[in-house]
Simulated scan of single mutants.
Amino acid sequence: MQKLSIKTSTNQYQVMIGSGLRFRVSDFLTRSYSSILIVTDSNIEELYLHDVIAGLSTFTNINYTVVPAGEGSKNSRVYFDIMTEAIQSGLDRDGLIIALGGGMIGDLAGFVAATFMRGIDFIQMPTTILAHDSSVGGKVAINHPEGKNLIGSFYPPQAVIYDLDTLQTLPLTEMRSGYAEIAKHSMIHQPSFWQDISKVKIRLPLNEDQLMQDLLRGIEVKAAIVEQDERESNIRQYLNFGHTLGHALEAELGYGRITHGEAVALGMLFAIKVSEHVFNCSLPYTEFKEWLKDNHYPISLPALSKQHLLTRMKRDKKAKKQTIQFVLLKELGQPTIEHIEDQHMLVWLEEFFRELVSF
């Protein structure tokens, strides 16, 4: 088992990564809880829920709730339903919520924990590669029809328990989604390790040693940034590389049409193209595009209104005074934040989507 310590201005917690950890959850709890509510989804329930319950054998008051799998469940109705179940199950301020699932479950259950009785403890138990990013850093949220993660908070977990065994049942779609975020970390880190990630072939079965190494590097990048800027007032915004267009694509297509990581991958490709325009630099645009193609990321999209995408980007949490703030690269490993004018953005969007059609 590998351990990483995350220390921020408001909390310190451990990230544990290894095999079989779902059977040992009690070993990682630092206090006794009056009751536990496990929040999971319909895919994970059959696979791992009862393993986790078995790993909590020292606790007697354990309840669980299951939401439909997919990003569509990260909404106000499901959030309120979980709140009702928490109240009816007898969860109180000395209780614990366990988020068992991918990034959607982590965000949703974390937001429930942040707001239930003004905040109770929760633990992240990610079951996807993508969640190596979302489970670390304390950002929790639900979506609004007008945009992704617009209703949320900063609320760090008490621990992250990452059982690598749960990744062996991932479909290739989810593997691609997760590796997009690892690729993001590889490009914004100094020194960049994109050349290592560019050699990854996303195939089944997973190479556990390779995966452990890539996950650790990704988490270390995020941890280092979060420790310096917990509430996204400065360099934490670099972690949004690829997310401005990515979030707009998710909302415009309808949540769940493509995965978060697949949308971010396209957003990163676009951000690289914009970076080359703004800084007149040479970045691995073609190389990254070929990597996406070789690993079967969805490149072809239905016709989308560029004006609608622009409007959604201007509603993004990072936008200021209705001006898009875009994370760009001066070169690999050197992210920066730039204001992009609407007229330039529309021209570059049009150019970018024309290239996707011909790719």
Rank of each mutant, 00 (worst) to 15 (best):
Q2E: 12
S9F: 01
V15C: 05
L21V: 04
R24N: 13
V25R: 05
L29V: 02
T30I: 04
S34W: 00
S35H: 01
T40N: 05
L47V: 11
L47A: 12
Y48M: 01
H50T: 14
A54V: 06
L56M: 08
T60A: 11
N61I: 10
N63C: 08
S73G: 09
F80H: 15
M83D: 00
M83Q: 12
Q88S: 12
L96G: 05
G103V: 02
G106D: 02
G110N: 04
V112E: 03
F116Q: 06
M117H: 06
M117S: 11
G119L: 04
F122M: 00
M125P: 01
L130G: 09
A131I: 02
G147Q: 11
K148G: 03
G152N: 09
Q158V: 10
V160E: 02
T166R: 01
Q168W: 00
M175W: 04
I182W: 06
H185Q: 08
M187D: 08
F193K: 02
K199M: 13
K199E: 14
E208S: 12
E208I: 14
I225F: 02
V226N: 06
V226A: 10
E227T: 14
D229G: 07
D229L: 09
E230M: 08
E232C: 07
F241V: 06
R257A: 14
R257E: 14
H260A: 05
G261V: 05
G267Q: 05
A271P: 09
I272L: 15
S275I: 12
E276Q: 15
F279A: 11
N280Q: 14
N280T: 09
L283D: 11
E290C: 09
L292S: 10
D294H: 11
H296L: 13
P298K: 10
A303P: 00
L304G: 03
S305K: 03
L310P: 00
M313N: 09
R315D: 05
A319F: 09
K320Q: 15
Q334N: 13
Q334K: 15
P335R: 13
P335E: 12
E338V: 15
E338Q: 15
I340G: 08
E341R: 13
E341N: 13
H344S: 13
L346I: 12
E350T: 14
L356I: 11
